[in-house]
């Protein structure tokens, strides 16, 4: 099951990367001769109300989800993880002030902040969405990484490294980072899943990438008006998102369980 999930995620990523070279139909090509068609050999998932191939749009749509989630996590972990590690290692004023600031951000509902910023920051682009969602995720990453680091920072092996003459930077990178990596990876997977959902929610509100660029969220949004005529347009992107998230969560779960076991063994 674990490997099926890994395979599914890999398939999605490969599909997103190679969407243009795969034998897919043009996701933007409108064929008015066959609108709202059901699944057939020619259109595996059918067509939407403008006659565009849903299968091609689902594959292309994964690009937005994957780009937004990876980009946002890059920002979230890029800022949140080093700050969290540093705060947990240094403690003192640095930690108190930084943690207080982060908690203020955490107290503010991220989704509302994201919606507010994206509503005013026009014209919208993929990059802006990534930046906003990424920054919104920083306090969450910070909190998780900080507590994970704190768990290890006071252990003897850190002091042992220190009295071997290791610099603080070396201790952070060589001693602490490998120890918190399992937690980081598990949280990264959860983070990606959350951002995919968030992109869906933003798209549903019309705040994601501009049409006609397909994204899973956009497609579900578009399907609303024709749900009764053509449910396929809602079903397939939802299914794609659902399976993607399910796989991510499953992998995250398994990894966490695996690392917990090896931790207990030590």
């Amino acid at each position: 099951m674990f490997w099926i999930c890994v395979g599914w995620i890999a398939l999605n990523i490969v599909g997103a990367i190679f969407a243009n070279v795969l034998p897919l139909q043009n996701p933007l090509f409108q064929n008015y001769a066959s609108v709202n068609a059901g699944p057939s050999l020619h259109h595996l998932f059918g067509t939407d109300d403008l006659g565009r191939d849903i299968f091609a749009r689902v594959v292309y749509g994964s690009r937005v989800s994957i780009e937004v989630s990876l980009g946002a996590m890059l920002i979230g972990f890029g800022l949140g993880a080093p700050l969290g590690m540093l705060a947990a290692y240094r403690r003192g004023k640095f930690d108190s002030i930084l943690t207080a600031v982060m908690y203020v951000f955490l107290a503010f509902p991220a989704i509302i902040a994201t919606i507010a910023v994206l509503s005013f920051w026009t014209p919208r682009s993929l990059l802006k969405i990534i930046v906003v969602v990424g920054i919104a995720s920083v306090p969450l990453v910070y909190r998780v990484i900080r507590s994970a680091t704190m768990n290890f920072a006071s252990r003897d092996f850190v002091i042992a490294a220190k009295v071997q003459g290791a610099t603080d930077r070396r201790i952070l990178i060589k001693e602490l980072l490998p120890n918190i990596a399992p937690v980081g990876v598990s949280f990264l997977l959860i983070g990606i899943a959350t951002v995919v959902t968030l992109e869906g929610a933003l798209a549903f509100l019309g705040l994601s990438v501009n049409p006609p660029t397909p994204s899973w969220g956009n497609m579900i949004n578009e399907s609303l008006s024709i749900l009764q005529i053509n449910p396929w347009l809602a079903i397939f992107p939802s299914l794609a998102m659902c399976l993607f998230l399910l796989s991510l969560n499953f992998i995250g779960d398994r990894l966490r369980a695996h690392f917990e076991v090896s931790e207990a063994k030590l």
């Binding site: 252990r155 003897d156 092996f157 002091i159 042992a160 030590l266």
Partner: peptide, 12 residues
């Protein structure tokens, strides 16, 4: 150190 269980880095 006192406790060899915690004075070695478990993942190195």
């Amino acid at each position: 150190f006192q406790d060899p269980m915690t004075s070695l880095n478990p993942v190195m």
